[in-house]
Design a protein around this nucleic acid. Structure first.
Lengths: 222, 222
DNA sequence: AATCCCGTTTTGGGATACCAGTATTGTCCC
DNA sequence: GGGACAATACTGGTATCCCAAAACGGGATT
């Protein structure tokens, strides 16, 4: 694989895992030494990441895209029509094998699993459901939305019951798709997105102090 | 403005105007002489355009993204839930001044206007409506969808009546938003997207011969 | 005439060199 | 000690250079 793609993926991972703080400045020279490559592939990776909005320009400088918690509502508003459409289409189009694949993914995440695993599966579930719709534009849009959501979800204080609740909702959505009940699946999906948003916002609000202590600007959080 | 952005914008325009044929190979050296800049900014522009899916890699080469007419259905399927949501939100949120702005845009496109003008306004209308929703994610998604549609719409054989029909539908949508009738606006928007898709597909089907003569692969067109 | 093969050319990927602008720092004067 | 200012260090933007690999071409062979 080309060096640029390696750098892109690694940097992406570092950003999404909060290894690099939101808003943190990135100089091409630092990245040069960090990844032991020249500025050429590094610049390409940065331009690419800029397209994914994981990196942004601040004047002439590069910075890790800040987390704007104020966009959480808009994100839910965006996801609801898309994901309800996705599950409806999934009911019409997904094969039993496709559905089983997603089910398996959920099963693989047992209660002993590490935090990263829960985080990843919780994101991938929505993308995989979107994939069942067979519409690549929906898939990409949902994947992008989940990426933007991803870092804020690390900040969330996950309690066992809230996590269990989310998983129950995932299973219910999948169950309705399996049962070929598009209306219920769509209702469940919309409710899940709303619930998740509220859980997230509540958690972040309760933990404002903790967030600030960890150096996160709590901008846009009402 | 940086040279890279200039190159990006010019190249983008050349692609969207079909100045560069879909599938056409782009060598960095040709672009170098064409834009009188070195490969560095050109490569950055290409990476950027790749993110917008206007340019693609074919092995090691760069090519102008082909037009896949088969994705027209998926695109409509994607737009309908988003744009119906957008008009509903617009009803709730758009100010009279905002609406008047869009109205003005439609008015500015009189029957004597050049083809480019119709094309541009026909695209921008949907983006502006999305903007009235106040949701930036919806705006960006619609803008991206309209970009992908853009080139196929150049291929369309525009008859006077079909163009008039589209404009009537635009006005109707806007009228319902103005009248604060979200249900009608949403229905009208969905119908418009479906109608437009059908008009486009019919036109392209009738003109297959013409398309091929102009060098366009009619892939994915049923 | 078709095909294979090898040298040449051209390509994109990466590294480096250079520049102009900007921020920083250190210093000198008050 | 504090503020103005100049030298300096560092940044991203661009141009150029080098390389390996892929594409191309042309001639020899069948």
């Amino acid at each position: 694989m080309s060096q640029m793609l390696q750098i892109h993926d690694q940097l992406r991972e570092m950003i999404l895992s909060l290894d690099l703080g939101p808003g943190e400045r990135l100089t091409e020279r630092w990245l040069e030494s960090r990844f032991e490559g020249s500025r050429t592939p590094i610049r390409a990776a940065l331009v690419r990441l800029e397209g994914e909005e994981l990196v942004r320009r601040d004047g002439r400088n590069w910075i890790v895209a800040p987390i704007d918690l104020g966009e959480l509502e808009a994100l839910a508003e965006f996801r609801i029509p898309l994901e309800t459409t996705a599950v409806r289409l999934a009911c019409a189009r997904a094969s039993a094998a496709d559905i089983a694949g997603v089910e398996e993914m959920l099963d693989a995440c047992q209660s002993g699993a590490p935090r990263e695993e829960w985080h990843r599966v919780g994101t991938d579930f929505h993308v995989e459901i979107a994939r069942l719709s067979g519409n690549p534009f929906i898939v990409k849009a949902i994947a992008g939305a989940m990426t933007r959501l991803s870092r804020a979800r690390w900040l969330e204080v996950w309690t066992e019951p809230s996590r269990e609740q989310a998983w129950r909702e995932h299973r219910r959505i999948l169950g309705f798709i399996k049962a070929n009940d598009p209306d219920s699946a769509a209702r469940e999906a919309a409710d899940h997105i709303t619930d998740t948003r509220d859980r997230l916002l509540r958690s972040l609000n309760e933990d404002r102090r903790g967030l600030r202590a960890r150096g996160f600007a709590v901008i846009g959080l009402r």
